[in-house]
């Protein structure tokens, strides 16, 4: 507790330092200003200062990063170990003879390649349709005249807060009635309406300068040309945000695919991992289960690592802007 607060105080005590960080002149400036700056600041690279920076600055960050990364690293390492290295109380960190046997066994116990293909199909089709619907709806809400737009927007805002879990039973009865169990459309259809994407893009479209659209309209561009040739091209980052957040959501979606599929060849990866965990031959076979977890987790982790700026922005939307 005291470590991070002291460190924060270090920053707050000398706001004049700004992004200059430990640059000597900035440090002198803050020292000259007032009695609050500790004397140690006079020598930014002194041993005491360095130790303090390490303890208050790096230690908490390092600790947090390790707490997050260790379980994921453990997953990957364990998936490469032989059963003898896992079913033992004599734990080793690195696999002695890294092997892909666990992946092979996961794939022979359950159709993992098929799960992967199903997840890709559901994610690509579902996300594409959702993003197109979000762009169209947001454009209509911002740029097309219509009565009751405020009420419609409010309904979308409320839908944003209704969890899909509450709707599974009625949707299950409906989809089952249309023979949609164990079909792609049955998995995809109920989740297609997108309140999140509509909300996020509407907020962005409201910030676009009206003059651009007026110019396009005076040039005789109809709504469809204005949408595809003006609004969409200048909204790249926002559309990317919506797309990525939607992809993450579709890939990880669990309760609906779990309920609507019971034939292995139609299951998505998270549901298939559950099947793997429940199958007798892999009970307690942690290496095989970790291999399954790697296949579920790593694709999203890679996308996140490459494009995290957009994803973080999308998921924390509303926290600062309101």
């Amino acid at each position: 507790m005291s470590a991070p607060t002291t460190a924060a105080a270090g920053n707050a005590a000398s706001p004049a330092r700004g992004i200059a960080g430990n640059a000597p002149d900035a440090t002198n400036f803050s020292d000259a200003k007032g009695p609050v700056a500790p004397e140690r600041r006079e020598r930014p690279l002194s041993r005491a200062n360095l130790a303090r920076t390490l303890a208050t600055g790096y230690l908490p960050l390092l600790l947090a990063t390790v707490v997050v990364a260790a379980p994921l690293a453990w997953m990957v390492l364990s998936s490469l170990k032989s059963p003898g290295e896992i079913i033992t109380t004599d734990l080793t960190v690195l696999p002695r003879n890294p092997t892909l046997d666990n992946y092979a066994q996961a794939a022979t116990t359950v159709p993992f390649a098929r799960f992967f293909a199903n997840s890709v199909i559901v994610t690509v089709v579902g996300s594409t349709i959702k993003c197109v619907l979000a762009v169209l709806t947001a454009y209509a809400l911002v740029f097309v005249r219509f009565p009751f737009k405020r009420a419609i927007f409010l309904a979308i805002l409320v839908a944003l807060m209704v969890p899909p879990q509450v709707s599974v039973l009625p949707n299950y009865i409906f989809i089952a009635g249309l023979n949609g169990l164990n079909t792609y459309w049955g998995i995809i259809l109920p989740g297609l309406g997108t309140a999140f994407g509509t909300f996020l893009l509407r907020q962005h479209f409201l910030t676009l300068p009206a003059s651009i659209l007026e110019a396009a309209e005076i040039d005789g561009a109809g709504h469809f040309r204005r949408l595809w040739q003006v609004v969409v091209p200048i909204s790249g980052p926002s559309i990317a945000t919506v797309t990525l957040v939607t992809i993450v959501g579709e890939w990880n979606d669990y309760i609906w695919p779990l309920i609507v599929t019971d034939r292995p060849e139609m299951m998505t990866l998270p549901v298939g991992l559950t099947l793997l965990a429940n199958s007798d031959s892999t009970a307690q076979a942690w290496g095989v289960l970790m291999a399954g977890a790697v296949i579920v987790i790593i694709p999203i982790l890679v996308i996140f690592a490459a494009l995290q700026r957009f994803i973080v922005a999308g998921l924390t939307q509303g926290s600062v802007t309101g």
Partner: peptide
């Protein structure tokens, strides 16, 4: 932030 975007099923298994 990373764990927030990962599959709850995969994470739970780990």
């Amino acid at each position: 932030f990373a764990p927030y975007v990962l599959s709850g099923v995969g994470v739970g298994m780990v």
